[in-house]
Write a protein that binds this DNA or RNA. Sequence first.
DNA 1: TCTCTCAGCGCAATCGATTGCGCTACCTGC
DNA 2: GCAGGTAGCGCAATCGATTGCGCTGAGAGA
Lengths: 337, 337
Amino acid sequence: MRERVTLADVAKAAGVHPGTVSRSLNEETEKQVNQETVRKIRKIAKKLGYTPNTVARGLRTRKSMTIGVILPDLTNPIFPPIVRGIDSYLLPRGYSVLVVNTDGDPSLEKKLFDSLMERQVDGFIIATGRSDTASIAEYHDHGIKAVLVNRDVAGIPFPAVTADDATGIRLAIEHLASLGHKKFLHLSGPAGFSTSRIRSKAFTDNCKKLGLHARIIKTTAYSVEAGQSAMDKYLDLHPQDATAVVAGNDLLALGVYHSLRLRGLRCPEDVSVVGFNNMSFANDFQPPMTTVHAPYFEMGVEAARLILSQIEGIEIGPMKITLPVSLVVRGSTARSA
Amino acid sequence: MRERVTLADVAKAAGVHPGTVSRSLNEETEKQVNQETVRKIRKIAKKLGYTPNTVARGLRTRKSMTIGVILPDLTNPIFPPIVRGIDSYLLPRGYSVLVVNTDGDPSLEKKLFDSLMERQVDGFIIATGRSDTASIAEYHDHGIKAVLVNRDVAGIPFPAVTADDATGIRLAIEHLASLGHKKFLHLSGPAGFSTSRIRSKAFTDNCKKLGLHARIIKTTAYSVEAGQSAMDKYLDLHPQDATAVVAGNDLLALGVYHSLRLRGLRCPEDVSVVGFNNMSFANDFQPPMTTVHAPYFEMGVEAARLILSQIEGIEIGPMKITLPVSLVVRGSTARSA
DNA sequence: TCTCTCAGCGCAATCGATTGCGCTACCTGC
DNA sequence: GCAGGTAGCGCAATCGATTGCGCTGAGAGA
């Protein structure tokens, strides 16, 4: 863009060799140079407005100081907090973040992965959690660093940071049971995601333990539309059956709201609904949504921490970190009629 | 990360010079090489799994194929669609996007700007719209390329892509007036933003034209909390005065919801409220929010288009693009009592 | 006074790709 | 058969910073 000041410019102005300037400006190597010289060079560098060229440095050091973040869709409200969590950890440490959206398309995911590789990212944070992501496991042997966040993938040799899904579902069920509900429905997310599997299993297990009637419907996506159509289908088959719905996430729960409303059913008077995620503005919905809060910002921070550990050469293996969740009771759950 | 295949590796395998491989693999220079050789080299490159090193290329070509996006806060729901719009235009053209959040802190914005410069970004898309951003105008003479999006800054020599704020406010007022409202309140965003200024002026102008009673309160931020406290203050001073509130954006409108609810006032029965932005889930609020829809995704696309034009050497000057808005009528507005 | 040591700094290779320049064939036209 | 032209490709510089190695000179020790 503008005619930039280079190391060589500073060196010339200071009457020294570029190598000396490089060493003077770097914390690590600063002690290899006379203190007096360091001060002089630093002053001249500042006067000339020298800024290092990260690209050139990256070429030589084989580090781009960049992390690639692969996620399904940034407009899904759980991802912005994750990204900001990642940012908050990485930026102060000199790293930048390259975010890409896959829209759930595995072939696009592969393509984006490759393009991030071309950009020499130092590591990946992957939030798509597709089983297809397992193909990325192949790269593990090539020394590629990655961390999964939000969703885990079975058998993948990378660390993962997830929320305590099982506990979240248990809290939801116990809450609903304490309100007198007996007949439960779970809208499960699509197969192939760890979140879907774990939440479904927790639903079944906890309902059995408490002696509750349990039914599960699989949705086609974690979206409002999928939630609505799944609930529509359920209500067609079993009108006025379940009084408690545990949704796979908040978007599905919102779909349930829509379905109920269109049929003249009231939430929570007729049907209680619990979401999962505690997305932004869940408190402003109609009715305010009872949901399981998952600490997305912190998950981002942890994922960033793990990827940097790997980059710094610490072998952590497929470590799994599970962050605690909590139930946020609002207006979408009430005592069973 | 892994032992990567370089241009030299391909050259050796093909028995030619690296320069020839480079020319063969590049669309532009391909015709400088014998078709037969090109085919052979391409095949070998694929077999070896060669992927170009974007960093090395960037050093030589002085282009990083990266655009820096500076915004206040990714968790503000208007920004994800903008970012996705930018992405959708840039990615297919080989560019990547580096997103940073300023949290409204001008000194942080300056620091992030510099760090993006160090990373040799080819251009900036700036969504913060602070008047302080004007300091970036200094760089204009140094050949820095930038586009403003969402908010413009007066007198800045860069192009800008914004929504038609004035028309949006007019539509809101006409809608409310047609419902019989006479006394209007506008919660204006903080001073210093083009959006605040334009929307306030449009509010005043249109109220005057229609002979409506108009009052404006400035908020301290475009946030739910700021909206709530501003509305609280207003209601303390003028209980039961205005029946129509035009909020500076949806978050402020949500703050108005909260304020009304805590005082036992009903929306829309007692007070009608209109937001601005039509953020995600505005339809799921309590009540569903009447608001002005602004095409954020498209704004991102346009901003991306303009920055690429500049990079490709097209002098567009401080061109201003204004995208049309529309009023989405939902449940937060009703006939005046 | 002479050697030895080491702090301080210069030299030049290196990272991987791009590109202006020029060389070598071969081909054409006369 | 020769000058002129051109296609195809190699050579080497270049982008800007980093870094192993080695040189120089000053200070220390004998």
